[in-house]
Every structure is written in structure tokens, then in C-alpha cells.
Design a protein around this nucleic acid. Structure first.
Lengths: 210, 210
DNA sequence: GTCTATAGGGGGATAGAC
DNA sequence: GTCTATCCCCCTATAGAC
């Protein structure tokens, strides 16, 4: 008793150091292309320690993957289930919050979606993502708006897809878009900042479109 | 002289068999997670032959990657540069054509974008993607429309991003969306079929939004 | 808990016969 | 061109000292 909870400041415990290094590596290169040696080196510990703490590369990956998915869902849930905000406000919040979030961690979306694709059943069945979305205030408000004739397309999945598409896709295609537009990272991020304001306007326009 | 161009029917030459198997494997699992042994087995040839034809896994990958990117760009160029179609018509064509294309090969978008991310400079500098888009009829028509006050947001990159986002992203997030919506593949594809008609309507709505 | 050293296996590539 | 057999490196995981 003395070692376990000492360093909670910035570099944290050994276990946390390993997880931080693993998170960066897995998010950047995915499971297959990441080597445990790189993680150990980046965490500034020995390779054996990694297995001491996490038993195997796969277990370590599962830990990181679960935390990444969980954090994503938690953020999502917070916005979609806020009973006090209108549907329009929720759209604004999703755009603003996720654009900020992804600018900080631009590799997370493609990482998540790639790895989910490799292991679809396994990963998703453990998290109650379906209920989270289908029972959300967001979905109820969408149904109301459809009933009142404020939204023409009745399928809420299209609405959610459109919102996520406009927010997330540009980051997934970032290198391609920078190639097309001749932009550096700073210019690209400025473009994404624009979208915080633009996406809610566009989404609103699609609601009444026919 | 007699072996090289005999089988052009369906299963094609040995080289083509290897490429077909490699294409499927790489598209599905990416470079790192694909084993040359799997490709050889799937192509129904010996592992040594793979190296005889392509010298290395990496060279084989580059071949597949280049062809995939080239095919994508060629399709893009054909639509964006058709001088005879209006901007609205081009939007319709992109939606229709790419949704059909991606339903047939649902792994290609995330494959392309993942691997581009791993090797951004190298892969994109070889293809004239910037000129292709920036000099396209599509971009000129967009500029015209902006000048005539028919489109409020003047940056053509936003326009292109929005179109590609709405078309491509749902496929990238397919397993997640199927999880949320409780859909099987057939139901998902039907939803994508809807979008062929819906996306042009939505895009048109965003043009005039403010 | 942390290290060094090494076992053990998998995967890419090649030698050489046919 | 195509095969079998094999090399050899690299990576994960573990044994065992401290």
C-alpha cells in the first residue's frame, strides 16, 4: 500500500501509462498494425510489463476499444437525452461538441468504425446502443415533429444518418479532402469550425425539403 | 506463346486470380491484417507463385490500391466533368451511381480512406485528384450558381463534402447503424435505395439555406 | 512490480526441382 | 509457370532473477 494510487497527476500509474500509449497506437494504426513493442516503448516500460498488466495484446485492445466506445456513447447519450433542449438545439449541440471532440482526436471515428466492422457482432452486442438511441428524447422529438408535419421524411434513421454524416465524414476523408483542396491541417480545421454553424442550418433545411 | 492470354473468360489468368483474391482480402481486412497465405489459398495457387508474380506483399498491395483509387477517380471524373448535365443532375448521378457501386462493394470506402490515412502523402501525390476536382465542370457550375445567388455558402468544398458525406458515410457506419436500427443487410440496402432520391432533394434544400 | 533473456509460432520470402 | 520445402526474421508471450 503506497504504490497504487500515488501518481494521479499527469503521467499517472504504470497501468495508465500503458493504456495511454496503447490508446494512441491503436487509434492511429488499428489492431493489426500495432505492435506491443511500440506500445511498451512509448509507455517507457518493458514489454513484459504489458503482459503482466493485461495478459495479452488482445485483452489490452479490448480494454481500449471498450473505453473508446463507451466514451462515445456516453457523450451521445448526454446530448440526445437532454429533456430540456429542443430537437434543433440538440442538432446544434451534436455538431459543436463532436466537431470539437474529433478535432482533438481525429483518428477515433475511422478507428471505431473500422474495428466495429471487423468484429461487428461481438463489440456492439455488449453495449445497449440500440435502446440508447431508440428510446432517446431525440427520437421522441423527431416523431413529434413528423406528426406535426414539421419534418417530411418520417424515418428517424435518415435524420440521424444525415446529422452524423455531415459531422463525422469530413474527418474520415480528411487526407483526401486536404489533397483536393490543397489545405494544411490548420485550414482544414477552420473549415470544420465553419461547419459548427452551417450544419444546423443545413439540417433544418432538409427537414422541410420535399 | 499460348499461356498468357488464353483464359479471359471468367476466372482469367493466374495473375488475375491472385489479384482478385488479393482485392477481396485487402478490401475486407486492410493491409496489415491480410496474410499472403490467405490470398494464395483463396486464389487456389501456391504461396510461392504470389511472390513470383508480384515480388512482395507490398507490391501486390500497391497494385490493388492503385487500381482501386484509379477506378474511383475515373467514375468521379466521368460524372463531374460531363459538360452536358446541370449541377442538379450531377448530384443525382453521384447519388445514384455511388450508392449502387458501394452496395456491390461495401468495404471499399473505408478501405480506401483507412489506407490513405496510413500513407497519405505517398498515395495521393501520384494521382491528379486535385486538378480533377478543381477544374471540373462541377466546380465551375457551382461557382456560377454562387455568383447568381442560387447557393448561399460559397465554398465548393462544403458542397462536395456534404454530397459525399450523405452518400458514403452511411456505408462506413453500416454495422453501427444496423445495430441501432435493428436492421439486416436487406433492410439496410433498402434504406440506401431511398437515399438515391432523397439526397438530391436534401442537397437542393441546403443550397438555398441560410 | 519491474526487468532481462528467451521460448515459441507465424508469416513473408526464396531455393531449387519439375 | 508452378510446386514443395525451408529459411529467417519479427512479434507475442512467458520464465525467472531481482
Amino acid at each position: 500500500m503506497a504504490k497504487k494510487k500515488e501518481a494521479k497527476a499527469l503521467d499517472t500509474t504504470t497501468e495508465e501509462k500503458i493504456k495511454s500509449a496503447a490508446r494512441v497506437a491503436f487509434h492511429k494504426k488499428g489492431y493489426a498494425a500495432t505492435r506491443t513493442r511500440d506500445i511498451a516503448e512509448e509507455a517507457d516500460i518493458n514489454l513484459a510489463l504489458l503482459n503482466y498488466y493485461f495478459r495479452s495484446k488482445e485483452k489490452l485492445f479490448e480494454t481500449i476499444m471498450f473505453e473508446t466506445l463507451f466514451s462515445f456513447m456516453q457523450n451521445m447519450a448526454m446530448v440526445l437525452n437532454d429533456e430540456k433542449s429542443t430537437l434543433e438545439k440538440k442538432v446544434e449541440l451534436v455538431a459543436e461538441k463532436y466537431i470539437d471532440l474529433i478535432i482533438k482526436e481525429p483518428n477515433v471515428p475511422i478507428f471505431m468504425l473500422s474495428e466495429i466492422r471487423n468484429n461487428a457482432e461481438g463489440l456492439l452486442e455488449k453495449l445497449p446502443i440500440k435502446q440508447l438511441v431508440m428510446n432517446s428524447s431525440f427520437f421522441k422529438q423527431h416523431q413529434d415533429a413528423v406528426a406535426k408535419g414539421k419534418i417530411t421524411e418520417p424515418n428517424p434513421l435518415h435524420f440521424l444518418m444525415n446529422l452524423l454524416s455531415l459531422v463525422v465524414f469530413p474527418f474520415i476523408a480528411q487526407p483526401l479532402l486536404q489533397g483536393i483542396g490543397g489545405m494544411n491541417n490548420k485550414q482544414f480545421n477552420e473549415l470544420m469550425q465553419d461547419r459548427k454553424k452551417l450544419i444546423p442550418v443545413w439540417i433544418k433545411a432538409t427537414m422541410k425539403a420535399k
